[in-house]
Write a protein that binds this DNA or RNA. Structure first.
Length: 678
DNA sequence: GCGGATCAC
DNA sequence: TATGGTGATCCGC
């Protein structure tokens, strides 16, 4: 029973507190000495005591798991094994090695920026952060064991010469923008993970590159800031995101790693990879797996049957994919945000009055942030951390969505009061308080910007013939900037409709931005399909009545309805729902760099007679709606890519406070080479 | 829906 | 003197 696991308890705890030499630049330093200093600096503190407590909880989880394991029968294991083999086969069949996924992150990003701006720092061990917490450190500091997420005062004990520079996020954001501009040229749909990290899908870029003249292939970025390029870490290249992430970490700081897209190479690569290297497997998961003597990814594969009996389905699914070297092959922008929060750490705060006023302040700030994004939420959560580092959250969900300071505070205040009362007659001794909003519904504030999408769409649909009437619905106002448009999801429930206030239980009614009819569904995919159909109809209409100056909405509406009916009927028979791959369009961030708009253009252009695409090599007159330049291409995919690039550039420049953009994306210049006519 | 926990950055 | 802030997700109620 006292079957002590491979690790002793002390060693286990060390893994929680001690130096994480995972990071680059940590090779060949005196681990024991460093860990000693870290431990000595921490011992006896409230923080340390709490960490100890948490570690013991993990140990209990492990014990429980080991007990479960001991009770597993051979029959169970055998059955599980069969199941696992079946799933493995299915997963193996789904393996896709055709994509070129790149993961890039900046090496010691904040530190690199500070060193760029202050030459003196280049020769000194330095870190960005405060005495309480460091964000990152440069390589000189890493030699002493100074690393991110370490409190500055401990770092100082490890390296008394350490220079700690306070963070300057505006500056990092500016550099990040420059870098993202470069990313966008390679993949307009790149996925930023933070200021210093992103995934890119290079597949299409590489295909296009084949057709470029030599001059273009060599220096593309002569006009761009070199200063930022210096700090880009060379990337990790692999057939999927999971692998790319590991690869980018491989040869830090000064090398890239490319994993060949073959099954053999992938499996070889995975074989001895420590499970902790996998994104998503953190300290605790590592410890639990280690208790089962699983330390390398190959062990995961060998122990899948056992794991499937001890872990949840989602966890197992993930383990299995990892063990096979599988991961996402398509990078998609994150969906809309699900929560927004604010929290603050402070010196012990025990006075109830002060706690309430702090709470109000947090609510005020949160309400401001909510307003900026036009959000309203139904759930208010209060987070408290006492001086012993114990964290509690308390939440309440309302009938109606709220956003204003007073409304949020009314709830948060009650939650706080309950906690204070529960502790009475003792005071709550807090070191952190936070307020979070979630369970968002669309808010009225969103309506104006959403309408700008309509304006944008309609502008495209009408091309030159702009309709001036229209029941004051702002349909023709194109005042919204491109970035505004891009910030918004396409299939947003109509904000000014009463049913979206969040106070009614009946299904949401969504208003089609094209035909303005109500679509009664909760499924945004269904709604998007409807919009697609409407756009088709609208563009057909436009084609038919090019000489007319008035857009016939009624006709559109009617045709929409008919088409939708037809479509629904045919869909009932087919397996593949139309447009199912476009589900990313309901995601606002997905639209940020043109994803959703792109489809609009495609749909519109699709309705052009196919003859103009294929016959006689005649070039159609595709005019980019962003840069307004005629694009000499008849390849819609190429045209769309161009628009994407333009949108990206515009957004980036807007972010930088510029209104014009300096260059037209080069892609289309070469489009003739990659047209279908070859 | 709630609350604790884990994870990433 | 001193161990962060934000967002997401999962699991077990």
């Amino acid at each position: 029973m006292d079957n002590e696991p491979a690790q002793t308890k002390d060693e286990g705890f060390l893994s929680r507190m001690a130096l994480n030499d995972n990071k680059a630049g940590m090779e060949g330093l005196d681990r024991d000495k460093i860990n000693n200093i870290i431990m000595e600096s921490s011992k006896g503190s409230k923080f340390y005591e709490n960490e100890l407590k948490k570690d013991q909880q993990v140990n209990q989880r492990i014990e429980k798991m080991m007990l479960q394991k001991a009770n597993i029968t051979q029959a169970q294991l055998k059955k599980a094994q069969a199941q696992v083999e079946k799933m493995t086969l299915a997963l193996e069949r789904s393996r896709d090695l055709s994509r070129v996924i790149v993961h890039v992150d900046m090496d010691a990003f904040y530190a690199a920026v500070e060193m760029r701006d202050c030459a003196e720092l280049k020769t000194k061990p330095m870190a960005v952060g405060s005495m309480s917490m460091l964000s990152t450190s440069n390589y000189l500091a890493r030699k002493y064991g100074v690393r991110a997420a370490m409190p500055g005062f401990i770092a100082k004990k490890l390296c008394s010469d350490l220079v700690i520079v306070p963070p300057n996020f505006d500056k990092y954001r500016a550099v990040s923008d420059e870098i993202r501009e470069i990313f966008a040229d390679y993949d307009p749909h790149f996925l930023p993970m933070s200021l210093d990290e992103a995934y890119l899908d290079f597949t299409e870029h590489l295909e296009q590159r084949q057709t470029w003249p030599e001059s273009l292939r060599t220096h593309r970025y002569s006009s761009k800031s070199i200063t930022t390029v210096i700090i880009i870490n060379l990337p990790g290249i692999a057939p999927n995101m999971m692998l790319a992430k590991v690869c980018s970490d491989k040869n830090k700081p000064n090398g890239q790693y490319r994993l060949p897209p073959t099954r053999e190479a992938v499996m070889d690569f995975i074989q001895d990879l420590p499970v902790r290297k996998i994104c998503g497997i953190g300290k605790v998961s590592e410890k639990m797996l280690n208790a089962l003597e699983i330390t390398k990814c190959s062990h995961l594969g060998q122990q899948m049957a056992l794991l499937s009996l001890l872990f949840s389905e989602t966890a197992c699914q993930n383990f299995m994919e990892v063990s096979l070297g599988l991961g996402s092959t398509r990078i998609s922008r994150h969906e809309e945000r699900k929560s927004m929060s604010i929290e603050r750490t402070f010196k012990e705060l025990s006075d109830a009055e002060e706690q309430f006023s702090l709470c109000r302040e947090l609510c005020k700030d949160l309400a401001e942030d909510m307003k900026k994004e036009g959000l309203k939420g139904k759930t208010v959560s209060l987070k408290l951390k006492n001086v012993n580092f114990e964290v509690k959250t308390r939440a309440q969900t309302l009938q109606c969505a709220v956003a204003a300071e007073e409304e949020i505070f009314a709830v948060a205040k009650d939650l706080l009061k309950t906690e204070i009362d529960n502790e009475s007659p003792h005071p709550l001794k807090l070191r952190l308080m936070g307020v979070r909003m979630s369970a968002f519904v669309s808010s009225d504030d969103k309506a104006p910007t959403q309408k700008s999408i309509l304006g944008f769409l309609k502008l495209q649909l009408h091309v030159s013939s702009v309709n001036t009437q229209d029941e004051g619905s702002a349909l023709n106002k194109t005042g919204g900037s491109v970035s505004q448009v891009l910030e918004n999801k396409r299939a947003a429930p109509a904000g000014d409709h009463p049913s979206t206030s969040g106070c009614e239980a009946r299904p949401q009614i969504l208003i089609c931005p094209v035909c303005s009819s109500k679509v009664e569904t909760t499924d945004l995919n269904v709604f998007n399909r409807h919009i697609d159909l409407c756009l088709n109809v609208a563009s057909t209409n436009q084609k038919k009545s090019e000489s007319e100056s008035v857009y016939d909405e009624k006709k559109c509406l009617q045709e929409c309805k008919e088409l939708n009916k037809r479509k629904e009927r045919s869909e009932a028979e087919e397996e593949q729902p139309f447009g199912s791959k476009e589900s990313s369009r309901v995601c606002p961030r997905g639209g940020q760099h043109g994803g959703s708009i792109q489809k609009v253009f495609l749909t519109q252009s699709d309705s052009k007679p196919t003859t103009s695409q294929k016959c006689q090599g005649k070039l159609s007159d595709l005019v980019c709606p962003v840069c307004h330049l005629t694009q000499e291409t008849d390849d819609l995919a190429v045209f769309n890519r161009h628009v994407d690039l333009c949108l990206n550039q515009e957004v980036l420049h807007e972010l930088k406070g510029q209104t014009t953009f300096s260059q037209n994306p080069s892609v289309v210049k070469n489009s003739k080479n990659i047209g279908k006519s070859q």
